[in-house]
Nucleic acid binder design. Sequence first.
DNA 1: AAATTACGTCAATAGTACTGACATAATTGC
DNA 2: GCAATTATGTCAGTACTATTGACGTAATTT
Lengths: 175, 175
Amino acid sequence: MTSPAAAKPIRTAITDEDGIDFAIIELFFFAYRDFTSDPDQILADYGFGRAHHRVLHFVNRRPGLTVAELLDVLKITKQSLARVLKQLIDTDHIVQVQGPRDRRQRELYPTAKGRALALALARPQSRRIRAALEDSGTTERATIERFLEAMVNPELRAQIDIVPAQTSGKNHGDH
Amino acid sequence: MTSPAAAKPIRTAITDEDGIDFAIIELFFFAYRDFTSDPDQILADYGFGRAHHRVLHFVNRRPGLTVAELLDVLKITKQSLARVLKQLIDTDHIVQVQGPRDRRQRELYPTAKGRALALALARPQSRRIRAALEDSGTTERATIERFLEAMVNPELRAQIDIVPAQTSGKNHGDH
DNA sequence: AAATTACGTCAATAGTACTGACATAATTGC
DNA sequence: GCAATTATGTCAGTACTATTGACGTAATTT
């Protein structure tokens, strides 16, 4: 420690003065850390990890999506998905159905078991969000939604839109 | 596929109707995914990962924090921190200084090099935030800050407060 | 002097990700 | 109909981040 040619320590804290929005950067880090810690607890009981959660979530959100579409949303490789998906299929959380038009494709659907787990995982997260929005009205909620959406890469923003409100158009058709 | 006793696929999407705030859950996921992708690019050039970024960030934010304090903020184990911290010290991004009162402690400080890297990593994140807040006023910003803060576990909310505004009290003294 | 604390380190393991290569089946293009 | 392409699956090898458990050292506290 304090080795011979050690560079000098800087003793002042980095702050927003440096022109960087550290306040929100840090808040975002802490918020996401705790946001994911809720489902992590439950997943541990199943021997699952965060990767299983993400797969389960999107299969429940967009039932019938293909493996390729899932890879695109998650931004991981086929090999990374393989193990996780196999485990979810083996444990009857997800089923594969041969694509109707293209029989090479496997459409992924949740089972009742998979739907239940997805809901169980989302419940504490939703509770946390509701608590955080406690005294907020529609305006505040809209502000937060707009902010989060604007944080997403514009090219990828399409992914969000796939499950619209709830009543509107079933789907956007193909691309 | 569609094996003998396969459970039946559910073909309807999970929605907010299930009493769960999937809209924000999903937005939060996408927003954080892209938020962290910016620095990940830069880190790759150094052979560093996300863990290095977090350590570098907090050492710059709270210069002089001890190893134990850092473990507490990051919520990881000593062994996990060890390799990452060692690499940052070996590459002259961080220096250790013997604790003044307690010589067992190692206070961690960034070097000029470590400060520069921390700023470089934060810059694209801050740019993304600024863009997302583009048309927002003070009210909207406050709403977002309040929301993010409320998403953090109350017990841990103290961690956020350590670097106050910028001018106010240097530190809260010891707890 | 003994117990505790702060830190470092070694060994073994796990989860999530990666790249590259190759196989199979189905579809498409000519 | 045959070749090329596409969708998916799988094998092998590797990397990073994280874990638990055990042990060592130095400094402080009791």
